[in-house]
């Protein structure tokens, strides 16, 4: 069950980022509502998952899968340009977050 909670939390976190990009600084009401509701849902399901997952491991999985998902979705559906430099930077940051969270639980 905790894997399902984590998967749902990742889906909502991905939605938060995409929706926040479309909310235009909260000027677009529909996307603002989706941003806030997804954010609340992501927090809720992550906290559910973290009851079972070790916190560092759960966080690491959550951020990394969401980060990769957002990058893929941004490129496929929102025509955002990726280049090698951006991919290296994203990999450094997300890899760093994963390393940080895993070393916290050690």
């Amino acid at each position: 069950m905790h894997w399902l909670y984590l998967a749902i939390a990742v889906a909502f976190e991905t939605t938060v980022a995409i929706a926040a990009g479309k909310a235009e600084g909260f000027k677009n009401r529909k996307w603002t509502a989706i941003t806030l509701l997804s954010g609340a849902a992501a927090t809720f399901f992550l906290s559910k998952a973290l009851l079972t997952f070790e916190v560092g491991v759960g966080y690491a999985l959550w951020t990394s899968v969401a980060g990769v998902g957002i990058t893929v979705i941004g490129a496929l559906f929102f025509a955002q340009r990726l280049n090698l430099n951006k991919l290296i930077g994203i990999a450094l940051v997300i890899g760093g977050v994963v390393g940080l969270q895993l070393s916290g639980s050690a």
Partner: peptide, 22 residues
């Protein structure tokens, strides 16, 4: 989320999300 939404008007979501979470 408000500040992120403002930033993502200009910055790509993949870059923005990584920096924000980082």
């Amino acid at each position: 989320l408000y500040a992120l939404s403002l930033a993502l008007r200009t910055i790509d979501v993949s870059v923005g999300y990584a920096v924000w979470a980082g």
